[in-house]
Design a binder for these strands. Structure first.
Lengths: 197, 197
DNA sequence: GAAAAAAAATGACCGCGGTCAATTGTAAAA
DNA sequence: TTTTACAATTGACCGCGGTCATTTTTTTTC
């Protein structure tokens, strides 16, 4: 029987999270140091690891929250009417991930997780993204905006593959040729989703 | 004017590489420790970093050699006659990368590099892979085995995206449901390459 | 209340990648 | 040969993530 966590523990966790959020705010994700977090939170280093499996575990919570927020935005925007609009819906997510390689790496590490450990925030948001995309694609198939000869779930996974591809390339160049990453995404989506004929 | 490297340097480099290869042989890529390499090679730690930018730089050479070997195999196998055969051609590469997450991570980090720094072995092999695939696809388009409404270069990049997608998922599951990763790849390639109609 | 048990927090310690001023080796210039 | 300039190597040192036996705090039991 697992006992309920006591108040002190919840406070400590909250303090760690808010401190980490603050640090990310002005150092960015890649500037986050465990030792800074615990110092500014006023706890010992070991404490952090009693609350999060490792540094990635902490990051996963922060990033998971953000991704959840982005998904909320996508969801309220509603079903896109064509591929261009679909790309636009995905653009904020791309911009967010493109901002820091750490985000990309972390998401990729969790990106295949089926809902085995849904307690993890990141895992949950992945499931949600696939579900959302699958739903959209189904509607778009019905509207004739998307090829119908493949199941929507497969098309959704393909979209994730292209998202990661575009981001992978993004992090390899020295963004001198700026432009938002979503711009690079569209041709792939067109080719992937366009109805035959 | 950069001077030619002296003999001693070349020997040291060779010793480092052979030692590292040996260690990978029986500990795997993820078991490779810089301190082990230098100890067994009989040099100081700093020496290694005078030869390779960082641990990844060393790994890139080892992995690059292996990938080059795999590409040689692909090349001699010749143009596949359909998507199933194409999948079969890619299977050895998938098996190799699937063996250790370290390989996957490293390749992904270099995966978008256009031939800016072709000195890097890995970068070179990437360029080569894209070239090879593009050539194949062109021929397969001509043979009517592959859709013709997209440029072969785009189709080739898409294949890379699916390769990485399949591998990403692969590393997230506890391969209880074994099977080679190439098996997971085929449906995507069919959907991506199949001619309309 | 005190004693026993469980939860939470602590910080010295470790592993490992990476740095750099100092040292040694090598080869061209005087 | 001696001097001079540069190439190559060295190893003590650092940063940072992560561990774990020990101590402190809270909760339960009597």
């Amino acid at each position: 029987m697992t006992r309920a966590p006591q108040k002190r523990r919840l406070e400590t966790r909250a303090k760690l999270l808010s401190t980490a959020t603050a640090i990310v705010q002005d150092q960015g994700y890649s500037g986050l140091r465990v030792e800074d977090v615990v110092a500014r939170a006023g706890v010992a280093k070991g404490t952090l690891f009693a609350h999060f499996k490792d540094k990635d575990g902490l990051l996963a919570v922060l990033i998971g929250e953000e991704v959840t927020r982005l998904l909320d935005g996508m969801e309220t925007a509603g079903v896109p009417s064509d591929v261009a609009e679909l790309t636009a819906r995905l653009a904020p997510h791309l911009d967010y991930v493109a901002q820091d390689r750490v985000i990309f790496d972390l998401l990729l590490r969790y990106s295949g997780t089926t809902a085995d450990e849904p307690d993890e925030v990141v895992t949950a948001s992945f499931t949600r993204q696939v579900t959302l995309l699958t739903g959209w694609l189904q509607d778009m198939q019905a509207a004739g905006e998307v090829r119908r000869n493949q199941p929507p779930a497969l098309l959704a996974e393909g979209i994730q593959a292209f998202l990661n591809h575009v981001l992978g390339v993004w992090f390899c160049m020295e963004h001198e040729n700026e432009a938002r990453p979503a711009q690079a995404l569209e041709p792939y989506l067109q080719a992937w989703l366009q109805p035959p004929g």
